[in-house]
C-alpha cells in the first residue's frame, strides 16, 4: 500500500554526492513531501534489498539519480545499485496493483542523453539533467512535485531558501555537536525538517 506523499530517493550516498542529496532532501521537504531511503533506519536484521523493496512498495513517487555509474577507481567496475533500484521501481509499476501502477518517477542524470550510452532501454522516458548542480536539482524536483491543484513556490524561491539553509548549517551543526561532513541520512533529515519548521514559507502580504 503506498503512502500519499512519500518520495523514494534512489541515489548514491558517498561524500561527493552529498551536496546533491542535501538539495534533493531540502526540495522534497520544502514541497511538503517526505523522503524515504534505505538508510532511514539502521537495522542490520533486515536484508537491504528487502528494505528497499518495502520502501519502494510504500512510495508512490521515486527520484532516481543514475549520474554515478562511473568506474570505481579501486575495482575498475561501475556501480549498478541505482539502475537496479530504478528497475525494481519500474517493475512495481508494471506488475503491481492499481496503487503501484500510479507510481511516478523522476530520473536524473548529470548530462542530457548520456544515459543512452549505458542504459539505452530507458530511452524514450523523460530524463532530466542536473549538471551536478544542487540548485538545478532543487528546481527539477520542485517542478516534478508541483502538480495541480497544489501550488508550490517556484524553484528559484526554494533554491533561495536552500541557500539560506546552507548558510546556517555549519553554525547549526557546531551547536549540535555534529560534524557536517559525517552526517547520516537521519541527521540530514532532522536538520532539514528542523530548519523548515522554524522558517516556514508564507505568502507575502
Amino acid at each position: 500500500m503506498t503512502e500519499g506523499r512519500h518520495v523514494f530517493i534512489n541515489c548514491p550516498f558517498d561524500r561527493a554526492y552529498r551536496p546533491l542529496l542535501r538539495a534533493l532532501l531540502f526540495a522534497i521537504y520544502d514541497c511538503g513531501f517526505r523522503a524515504r531511503s534505505a538508510l532511514e533506519v539502521e537495522d542490520s536484521g533486515e536484508v537491504r534489498v528487502q528494505k528497499i523493496i518495502r520502501i519502494i512498495g510504500e512510495s508512490p513517487l521515486g527520484i532516481h539519480d543514475i549520474s554515478r555509474v562511473e568506474l570505481d577507481p579501486s575495482s575498475n567496475l561501475p556501480r549498478f545499485n541505482m539502475p537496479l533500484e530504478l528497475g525494481l521501481f519500474m517493475g512495481a509499476r508494471a506488475y503491481g496493483g492499481a496503487d503501484q501502477q500510479a507510481k511516478r518517477a523522476l530520473i536524473l542524470d548529470s548530462d542530457p542523453y548520456r544515459y543512452q550510452k549505458f542504459c539505452s532501454d530507458i530511452a524514450g522516458q523523460d530524463i532530466q539533467a542536473h549538471g551536478n548542480k544542487p540548485y538545478v536539482a532543487v528546481e527539477l524536483v520542485r517542478n516534478w512535485l508541483s502538480t495541480p491543484p497544489t501550488v508550490i513556490p517556484s524553484g528559484s524561491v526554494i533554491a533561495k531558501r536552500y541557500r539560506t539553509f546552507r548558510s546556517t548549517l555549519t553554525e547549526g551543526c557546531a551547536k549540535l555537536q555534529l560534524n557536517p561532513r559525517r552526517l547520516t541520512f537521519s541527521d540530514e533529515v532532522t536538520l532539514v525538517v528542523g530548519w523548515l519548521q522554524e522558517n516556514p514559507w508564507a505568502p507575502q502580504p
Binding site: G172, L176, V193, G194
Partner: peptide, 10 residues
Amino acid sequence: VTLAQARAVF
C-alpha cells in the same frame, strides 16, 4: 539529535 533540538538551534 532530536527534531526539537534542531529546531531550538535554528
